[in-house]
Amino acid sequence: MTRPVRHRRRAGALTGLAALLGTLAFAGCGIRPTQVPVDAGPAPSRVPCEVSGDNRSAQPQGVPVRIYLVCASQLSLVDRTADIPAAKSPADALRTAQALLAELQKEPSSAEREAGFATYVRGGISVGGGRASDPAGTLRLSRQPEDLPAAALSQIVCTFAESRAASAGVVVLGGPGAYAPRAYECTGVTRDRPAEPVPTHPLTSPPPSPSA
C-alpha cells in the first residue's frame, strides 16, 4: 500500500516542479503572466447596410432617386422616390437638388434604421440657384458648406454628384455670404470616410452647363 502512495506523491511533486519551472521561464523572458484579456479593438459592425425588400414601396409616388446615407461610418446608397421632373432639361438641376436635399433631411424609415442607416443632414437647410457672377451650374446653400458637419456635406456632395444637380460629377456649391463658390468632388475616400473634409478644386474656368 505504501508504494502507490509514494508514486502519487512523486507524480504530484514532479507536476508542481514543472509548473514552477514554466513560471520562472516565462518570467525570465521579461513577460509577466496575466489573465487580463487583450483589447483587440471594436468588434466588427453587424449592421447589414442594406434595406430588405423594396424601400420605395413605402415612399410617395414619384421618380426613383438614390441618395447617400451614413451606415457603419461610410456612405451607402439608398433608393427613394422624389417629386422631380422625369424629363431632363437644364432648368431641372435646381429642382433636382431641392428634392434630393429634402430627402436627405428626412428621418430614415424604420427599414432603413434597422439596416443601420442614418443622416447627418439636418432640417433648416435650403438650396437655391447661383448668382449672376457665379459659374454656370452653381448651387448656393442657405448655410456655408464648410460650416456644415463633414458627414453632412459628404452626403450632399455625393448625392448631388450622381444626379442632374451636378455637371460631369462636379458639384459647385456656395453659401449665403459673399464667399466664392467651390467645386466639390465625391471620391472613393469621401464615400469610405465621410467624416473627413470633402475634396475641393479651384474654379479656374466655369464648369460645363448641366445640359452638356
Rank of each mutant, 00 (worst) to 15 (best):
Met1Pro: 11
Thr2Asp: 14
His7Ala: 14
Arg8Ile: 09
Ala11Cys: 01
Gly12Pro: 00
Gly16Gln: 11
Leu21Ala: 13
Thr23Gly: 09
Leu24Val: 15
Leu24Tyr: 03
Gly28Cys: 05
Cys29Gln: 08
Gly30Gln: 08
Pro33Gly: 09
Thr34Val: 11
Gln35Ser: 15
Asp39Gln: 09
Pro42Lys: 11
Ala43Arg: 03
Pro48Phe: 04
Asp54Cys: 04
Asn55Arg: 09
Ser57Gly: 03
Ala58Ser: 14
Gln61Ile: 08
Gln61His: 11
Gln61Tyr: 13
Val63Phe: 13
Pro64Asp: 12
Pro64Phe: 07
Val65Thr: 07
Tyr68His: 06
Val70Thr: 10
Cys71Lys: 08
Thr81Lys: 14
Pro85His: 08
Ser89Val: 09
Ser89Tyr: 08
Pro90Tyr: 06
Pro90Ala: 12
Ala102Thr: 14
Leu104Pro: 03
Gln105Lys: 06
Glu107Asn: 15
Ala111Ser: 15
Glu112His: 08
Glu112Ala: 01
Glu114Phe: 06
Ala115Gly: 04
Ala118Glu: 07
Tyr120His: 03
Val121Lys: 01
Ile125Cys: 02
Gly128Val: 02
Gly129Gln: 07
Ala132Val: 06
Ser133Arg: 14
Asp134Thr: 05
Asp134Arg: 04
Ala136Trp: 00
Ala136Gln: 06
Ala136Cys: 06
Thr138Ser: 11
Asp147Val: 05
Ala150Tyr: 00
Ala150Glu: 09
Ala150His: 03
Ser154Asn: 04
Ile156Pro: 00
Thr159Asn: 02
Thr159His: 03
Ala161Leu: 07
Glu162His: 10
Arg164Thr: 08
Arg164Leu: 09
Ala166Tyr: 04
Ser167Glu: 06
Gly169Leu: 09
Val170Phe: 07
Val171Gly: 01
Arg182Thr: 07
Tyr184Trp: 10
Glu185Lys: 09
Glu185Asn: 04
Thr190Val: 15
Thr190Gln: 01
Arg191Thr: 03
Pro194Thr: 05
Ala195Trp: 14
Pro197Glu: 05
Val198Met: 05
Thr200Arg: 03
His201Ser: 11
His201Val: 11
Pro202Arg: 08
Thr204Val: 12
Pro206Glu: 11
Pro208Cys: 08
Ser209Phe: 07
Ser211Trp: 09
